[in-house]
Simulated assay, not measured.
Amino acid sequence: MEVRGQLSTNYHLEDLKEESMAYVNRLFGERYKQWKSDLHHHFEAFDDSQVAL
């Protein structure tokens, strides 16, 4: 909901149909999971968290 609120300043999301909003929510979830996975793999490459930062 917070992400959608931030995006609503640039995009008009209120008038979307229910199926379109479900698609957007699913897309947000997939992108967020991929971002978290990418971060995990990046930090996994380092032995020390301070070095990774």
Results as ranks from 00 to 15, higher is better:
Ser49Asn: 13
Glu30Asn: 09
Asp15Gly: 05
Leu7Asn: 03
Gly29Gln: 13
Asp48Ile: 02
Lys36Gln: 15
Asn10Val: 14
Leu13Lys: 02
Gln50His: 11
Asn10Ile: 14
His42Ser: 03
Glu14Val: 07
His42Tyr: 12
Phe43Ala: 04
Asp48Gly: 03
His40Arg: 10
Thr9Gly: 13
Arg4Phe: 13
Arg4Lys: 15
Gln6Asp: 14
Arg4His: 09
Gln34Ile: 01
His40Val: 07
Ser49Thr: 14
Val51Met: 05
Glu2Cys: 06
His12Leu: 12
Glu18Asp: 08
Asp48Leu: 03
Tyr11Cys: 12
Gly5Asp: 09
Leu53Ala: 15
Glu14Arg: 07
Lys33Asn: 07
Leu16Ile: 03
Gly29Ser: 11
Asp38Gln: 10
Glu30Arg: 06
Gly29Met: 08
Ala45Ile: 00
Ser49Cys: 14
Leu27Ser: 05
Lys33Tyr: 00
Glu18Arg: 05
Gly29Lys: 11
Lys33Ser: 06
Trp35Cys: 13
Asp48Trp: 01
Glu19Tyr: 04
Gln50Lys: 13
Glu2Val: 06
Glu44Thr: 13
Ser20Ala: 12
Lys36Cys: 14
Ala45Asn: 01
Glu18Asn: 03
His40Met: 09
Glu18Trp: 00
Val24Asn: 00
Asn25Ser: 02
Gln34Pro: 06
His42Trp: 07
Phe43Glu: 09
Arg4Met: 15
Leu7Gln: 06
Gly5His: 04
Phe43Arg: 09
His42Val: 08
Arg31Ser: 11
Leu39Ile: 14
Gln6Pro: 05
Asp38Pro: 02
Glu44Ile: 09
Glu14Gln: 12
Ser8Phe: 00
Arg4Cys: 12
His40Thr: 08
Thr9Ile: 10
Leu7Lys: 03
His40Glu: 14
Leu13Gln: 08
Thr9Met: 10
Leu7Thr: 04
Phe46His: 01
Val51Gly: 00
Ser8His: 04
Lys17Ala: 12
His42Arg: 08
Gln6Ala: 15
Gly5Leu: 08
His41Tyr: 11
Leu13Ala: 08
Leu13Tyr: 02
Met21His: 01
Met21Ser: 05
Asp47Asn: 07
Tyr23Thr: 04
Ala45Arg: 01
Glu30Met: 07
Phe46Trp: 00
Ser37Asp: 15
Ala22Pro: 01
Tyr32Pro: 02
Lys33Thr: 04
Ala45Gln: 00
Ala52His: 01
Glu19Thr: 11
Gly5Ser: 06
Lys33Asp: 10
Trp35Ser: 15
Leu16Lys: 02
Phe28Ser: 09
Lys17Gly: 13
Met1Leu: 10
Asp48Gln: 07
Glu19His: 03
Leu27Gln: 03
Leu7Ala: 11
Leu13Cys: 03
Glu30Tyr: 02
Asn10Trp: 10
Ser37Trp: 11
Met1Gly: 11
Glu2Gln: 07
Met1Asp: 12
Ala22Met: 04
Leu39Lys: 11
Gly29Val: 05
